[in-house]
């Protein structure tokens, strides 16, 4: 027992000695040269509409110009202009056929917002947003917590006459000096009843990166 206690004390002393032992190899130089301060962080607001050319990937300028071209073209189409009242449209998927992880829903949502702001088109809820609509109707009709006269009734939803579908694809070429990215974005307006494509527009973008 005594031997065990002695060994513990010696080990403790040794450890304590180790902890206090480190001596700076060059204390003078460490004291005189403090570590460089981190570079100051500069935060500033920029113009959200300005031309963005950080990389050749699909960026904010591409998104904005694609959405603008599509919306203005669709608004000028005879399908929209010849309708007596604002036609009901819904969003379908934009198929991303590029190698980039592009959030295509951002494009369709931007198109939808601009079309709605024009007042020429109305939108029915899309398939992706259907669950939230069903949940809300269930909440109002099945929880028994709402007055009957103010409840949103079921089986009253309107079906869209048209749907918007699209595709984005790229051709990428590169050599030692440069990389060339060619985007092609196509949007179609399909008549849900007849299956006829009533309008289509494409937007082409070329971006070049010099190494």
């Amino acid at each position: 027992m005594k031997t065990y206690s002695f060994a513990c004390v010696v080990a403790g002393l040794l450890l304590a000695g180790c902890a206090s032992a480190p001596i700076p190899s060059n204390p003078v130089s460490q004291a005189s040269v403090p570590p460089p301060p981190p570079p100051p962080t500069i935060v500033k607001y920029g113009d959200s509409q300005s031309v963005e050319t950080v990389t050749a990937d699909f960026g904010s300028t591409d998104l904005q110009s694609v959405a603008e071209t599509m919306v203005r073209s669709m608004l000028q189409s005879k399908t929209i202009q010849n309708s007596r009242s604002a036609p009901l449209v819904t969003l379908a998927e934009v198929n991303n056929q590029t190698n980039e992880p592009i959030n295509t829903r951002l494009i369709t949502q931007k198109v939808r917002t601009q079309l709605l702001k024009s007042g020429q088109v109305k939108f029915a809820i899309s398939g992706n947003e259907m669950q939230s609509q069903v949940d809300e109707l269930k909440r109002q009709n099945q929880t028994g917590m709402y007055r009957n006269d103010g409840v949103a009734k079921t089986a009253k939803m309107e079906g869209a006459k048209y749907r918007i579908t699209g595709t984005i694809s790229t051709i990428v070429k590169r050599n030692r000096e440069l990389k060339d990215v060619f985007y092609n974005f196509t949007l179609n307006l399909v008549n849900n009843e007849t299956g006829v494509i009533e309008w289509a527009e494409e937007k082409e973008i070329r971006k070049t990166v010099l190494n």
């Binding site: 300005s50 300028t61 024009s118």
Partner: peptide, 21 residues
């Protein structure tokens, strides 16, 4: 959005815009 436009010397372009409303 600002739309990029590349113009070399003596190059001309017809820029078309459609009103949103």
């Amino acid at each position: 959005a600002w739309k990029p436009l590349t113009l070399t010397r003596d190059q001309s372009a017809d820029l078309v815009g459609v009103a949103p409303t």
